[in-house]
Computed example of a mutant assay.
Amino acid sequence: MGAAAGRLWGMGQRRVGIFSEDHVAAISADLATAIDSAAFGSGSWDEVPAVLSHAFPGSFGGLWNMNFAERSLNFLAVRNIDPAFAKSFREHFAYINPWIPYWSGARSGIAALSEEVFPARNFADTEFYNDWLRPQKDVEAGAGMKIVGDRGETIQFIMNFPLSLSETYGKAAVEVLRRVRGNLERSISLARVMRTSVEQAVAAAAVVERNQCAAFVVEGNRLMREANEKALQSFSSGRAVIVRNDRCFMANADADARFGLMLNNLSQGVFTDGARITFRTSAGAWQVTMAALPTADPSRSNISLLPPRQLVLVLMTQLNPATPDAGDLSALSAIFALTPSEIGLCRRLFLGESVSEAADRLGITVETARTRLKSILQKTGTSRQGQLMLLLSRLK
C-alpha cells in the first residue's frame, strides 16, 4: 500500500509517514465534518469512528466517554469491530484496560501512539490482552486522543491497527487526530451546555409544584442540583440534612449510609424497592422518599456523547418536632390491639431502623419482621410504612 500511495500522490508532496499531506488533509476534513454533523444533530456519532477506520483499512475506530474515577462507561461508539467484542468491552474490558493509567494521567488534548507511550507487549500477560485484544486478528498497535469532558469524564478517540502497519499508519493517524481536536473540543463544549440545560429543566420541574414538604434534586454523587424553599430552610437549620461543598448528607449516620446506597442504586438505574428512609435526630423524626427522575433520550446525537446524568428527587417530611426516643408505645395495645412483639417492631422502625435492621436487633428473620409489619399495617389501617410512622408520631 505504501509504495502505491507514493506513486499516486507524487514524489514532491510533503508526507506524514507514508501518507501525503493532501491525503492527511482530506481525511481530517472528512472527519471534522462527521464530528460537526454529530454535534449539531444532523449526523450520528457512530459515523465518526467509521470515517477514521475507513481511512485506515484494517483498523477499527472507537469513540467513548469514560469516567475513570467512577468506573463508568457513559458512551461507546465503535466501527469495524465484532459486536461481541464491543459488547464485552462495554460490560467488562473497558474497566480493566491496561492503557487506563496512561490516559487518566495524560493532559487534555494529547494525541499519542501506543508504540511510543505504552506498547501492548508491556501487558501481554493480562486478561485484557489475551482475552480481548489479541483475539481480534492483530490490532495491537493504536493511536488515540484524550479530551476532558465534564466532571471527571474523559472522551477518548482511538484507532487500533495491526502492528505491522505502525510505520504506515502511526504518524498519519496522530496527525489526523490533532487536526480534528478543535472540532471535537467544540462539540464537547456544546454537549456540556446542552446537557446542563436538559438537567436543569428536569430538576426544576421536579420541585416546582412540591410545596408541602422539602424537595430537592441530587446527582448520584450527592451534588445538589435544585431545591424548593422548604428544603433550603432545612439545609440552613441542619437538623435533618447537612450540605457541605454543595453535597447533601443526612444528619443521622445510619440513615446517611442508607441514603448513599439508595442514591447510588437509583443513579445507576438499579431497581430499588421501597426507596424510603425514616430516621430520628435530636431535633425530631424524619421520613425521606427518593425516586429517579426521567432522563432525556440519550440516542439524540447531539447529547449522546455527554448523556444527561441520572438525577434523583428527594422528598423529606418531618414526622414529629422533637421526641427524644420512641417511648414504650404501650398505648398501641389498647388502641389497635397490637401484640408486644408488634409493638417492639414499631419501636425499632420508629427509631429509624430498616425492616432488616429491626429484625436483626429483635433476633428474628426478615421474613418474620415483614409478616409482623403487614399485620401492623392492617390493624392500624395504614397502607405503607411511612403512613405508620406518621401515625406513631402523632400518638406521641
Rank of each mutant, 00 (worst) to 15 (best):
D22E: 13
T281V: 14
P307N: 01
L293N: 02
A275N: 00
G62K: 02
P135L: 03
A296S: 09
R258E: 15
Q136I: 06
W132C: 02
D131E: 14
A206S: 08
A173T: 05
M316L: 15
V24S: 07
R394S: 08
R280D: 10
S356C: 07
T339W: 12
V202F: 07
N320Q: 12
L8A: 15
L373F: 00
S299A: 15
T380Y: 01
L52H: 08
A3N: 07
V270W: 03
S187N: 05
V270R: 00
K137D: 14
N221D: 15
A296V: 09
I343M: 05
L351Q: 04
N302P: 04
E367I: 12
L392S: 01
F157A: 06
V139D: 02
S197P: 06
A173E: 01
L319H: 06
V218D: 03
S383H: 13
A358T: 05
A334G: 10
L329E: 02
R121A: 15
P101K: 01
S330G: 15
K171H: 11
F118S: 08
R384M: 09
A331G: 12
P308L: 00
L8S: 09
S197K: 11
Q13N: 09
M194D: 15
K171L: 12
E357H: 00
P307V: 01
G142C: 12
R280S: 15
S164W: 00
V355D: 01
N80K: 05
Q156F: 13
A292D: 04
E115M: 14
V241D: 07
L377S: 07
L329F: 10
K230R: 09
M145A: 15
F40V: 13
S304Y: 02
S375W: 05
G352F: 06
S189P: 02
G170A: 07
L390F: 05
L184N: 04
M262Q: 06
A275L: 02
A4L: 14
D22A: 14
G381N: 09
S393D: 02
Y129K: 02
Q287I: 05
A5K: 00
I96W: 08
S42M: 09
L223M: 11
S28W: 05
I100K: 04
A326F: 00
P294L: 08
G238C: 05
S197Y: 10
N74F: 03
A50S: 14
I27M: 04
A201D: 11
W132Q: 02
F157V: 11
R121V: 10
T168C: 08
A369M: 00
R195K: 14
M1Y: 11
R14A: 12
P324A: 13
F89V: 11
E367Y: 08
V243G: 09
F161L: 07
A172K: 00
L184C: 03
F68C: 03
L349C: 04
V193P: 01
I155G: 03
E226Y: 03
S42P: 06
G62A: 11
A32S: 15
P57V: 09
F85D: 11
Q212F: 15
R247V: 09
A172I: 04
S375D: 14
N320K: 03
